[in-house]
Simulated scan of single mutants.
Amino acid sequence: MSAVALPPTPKSPGVGARRKDPKQLPTLPLSVFTPPNTGTSDKFPGQPSPSTLHPEEIIDAHVLNASGDLAGWKSETGQTIGGRVRGIVLSLHGAQETDVEKVVQDAASASSSTPILAIAVPFKLEDGAPASPPPYLASGSSSKPTIALTTTFTKPSQAAIDALSWALAQKFTVNIDVQSDLQQEGGWEALVDLITKATASPGAKKGKTVLSNILPPPDDLALPIVKLLTHPSYRTYQDQTASLSLCANLYVNFLPPAWGAPTPPTPPAAEKTEAEPEADKASRADVKEKNEWKRRIKMYIGPAVEAFGFQRILFGSSPAAPLSGSSSASNAGDWFELARESFAELGLEQEDLDAVFARNARLAYAAPSS
């Protein structure tokens, strides 16, 4: 049998042909796959410990004192945050109208190691838009510190809408202390309605609004956290916080909550002993109470961050305007530690912590542009 001739073998593509149109593959730097060369560990770095995460600087966006006296605030913050404070927003909420101008002048001229970024003067929403505002509310005022407004919201009215719209059109930053019962039917809706209608006109979008007493909102500590998760009030808080975040130029103050109890202190580190003294037992009780507060606080921070991001939340050390008979006292230093740890334990970045504790306040209370 004669041999059958095989067809010629097809030529394989040469090297040049294979390189003619190479496929572009995504590349990652080798550093992604290389652990840090520390000489002590071959593990990747984890999240920074909450105990070591501190804001680079602090601007306290809510220091409440009707007389303008900062002595009490300084004594509470001196050893805890005094060295990091770069400015404050002084609220004169509760000051008599006849005394406001003098207090503003005294506070503005007083020499202090703590700069006053802004002074929030009383302003009544229920009085409507002022026909003849006092001199310190004159339109276009370029006074330093910046003049802001502080007011209280209790119930909706056309006068309140007109007053807030006027203030925002004058480029003021308005701190609204929410003292209405948000848990009642229509409570949250009334607040959203006020902000929405007051900012409806283009001119009213020049100013900024800061809400107090909603982060965290008033709460009942007797309600266990496991039940709070499914409670109607918490679900409403989640929904309405998202609604508020849609309003232009709106911020929220992160203040000591009105929970009918003083802010728990930060216990000092106790040494271990064989026989536990009574002081150590008390310290352990303080730690337990503080951890319980942090768990509850973080439940409210979560929806607020989802709605507003870290860019529209301001740290302040004074509670909202105290109600008659309220026992929600707070030490500024204790609240700072509780607030810092609550945010740090969420695993946020350094820049986010710096935004909440300083940078956002500068933006919210910056002098209005002409």
Rank of each mutant, 00 (worst) to 15 (best):
A269W: 02
A242V: 05
D286V: 11
L164P: 00
K43Q: 13
S49K: 13
F123G: 00
N65M: 11
T146C: 08
V121D: 02
R359Y: 13
S41M: 10
F336G: 04
K294A: 11
P133H: 13
V174S: 00
A332H: 06
F315D: 01
K272G: 10
L255H: 08
A332S: 15
V287M: 10
A148E: 07
R19C: 01
M299A: 07
R84V: 08
T241I: 15
A129E: 11
T152R: 13
S75P: 02
P55N: 06
G207T: 12
L90H: 07
I161H: 10
F153R: 05
S141D: 12
S75E: 14
F310A: 11
D106F: 12
R19M: 00
Q170V: 00
V104T: 03
D219C: 12
G16N: 09
A120T: 03
A120R: 03
A344V: 07
W166K: 05
V287A: 12
F343N: 00
D99I: 02
L6K: 13
D239H: 15
V103A: 02
L223F: 03
S283Y: 03
A159F: 07
D181T: 14
A66K: 13
K205C: 08
P8G: 14
A329M: 08
L323I: 05
A95D: 09
S243I: 07
V4S: 11
A279C: 00
R284G: 02
S318V: 05
T151D: 09
D60K: 04
I81Y: 04
A285C: 01
L323P: 00
A275W: 10
Q24P: 02
R235T: 14
S157N: 03
D286W: 04
A269D: 10
D127F: 07
Q105H: 14
S318W: 07
S317L: 09
Y136A: 04
A167H: 13
G260C: 09
